[in-house]
């Protein structure tokens, strides 16, 4: 369920915490396992993480369902996390989200038929001076305009 490579990555996180506190690494472990499994988690993968970190399955499930950054159903290869909170909203995020939905042909929450992208509306990402903005993977894209969005989306492969 968890690859050797993933285990190594998880172990590196576990090493940051005191002995016996390996469950501190659960958030990263879930992310690592999610990344290896088409960007979403299943009961089995959550249980596997729990087992690996020697914690109750339900405790890992609590974490996996509490935080935003885990998916429990299939998502696209790229999730466009579009901020729609106040500063971005004041700077036109809503119109741009509508533009983006039109551009990719699916609504927020749905995945494009080719499985490439989906849009998710998220709360403030802490880049408000660059509003409006969104995040894809590790990368922030700020001061968005319709043109800029087109260019970014066209570049997704």
């Amino acid at each position: 369920m968890i690859s050797t490579k993933a285990k190594k990555q998880i172990d590196a996180w576990v090493a940051k915490y005191p002995e016996g506190r390996q469950s501190s690494a659960v958030m990263e472990a879930l992310k690592i396992v999610q990344a290896e499994n088409d960007n979403s988690l299943t009961s089995d993968s959550i249980q596997a993480v729990a087992d690996y970190l020697d914690m109750p399955g339900i405790a890992a499930a609590e974490v996996a369902t509490f935080y935003e950054n885990y998916n429990h159903k299939p998502v696209g290869k790229y999730t466009i996390r579009f901020c729609h909170n106040i500063s971005c909203m004041l700077n036109g995020a809503d119109d741009l989200i509508a533009h983006l939905e039109k551009k990719i042909g699916v609504k927020t929450g749905d995945v494009t038929p080719d499985g490439l992208v989906n849009v998710k509306k998220v709360e403030c990402l802490g880049a408000c001076v660059g509003a409006p903005m969104f995040q894809i993977g590790d990368q922030y894209y700020e001061n968005l305009t319709a043109d800029k969005i087109d260019e970014i989306v066209d570049g997704l492969k």
């Binding site: 009961s43 959550i46 249980q47 109750p56 399955g57 339900i58 405790a59 499930a61 609590e62 369902t65 509490f66």
Partner: peptide
């Protein structure tokens, strides 16, 4: 469950208004 039964079986999944008390499996 966690403190007396000694096996954490019920938990609160989700958050906010959607928090749901349930066992995992």
């Amino acid at each position: 469950g966690a403190e007396v039964a000694g096996i954490m079986e019920m938990g609160g999944t989700g958050r906010g208004e959607d928090m749901k008390i349930e066992p995992f499996l």
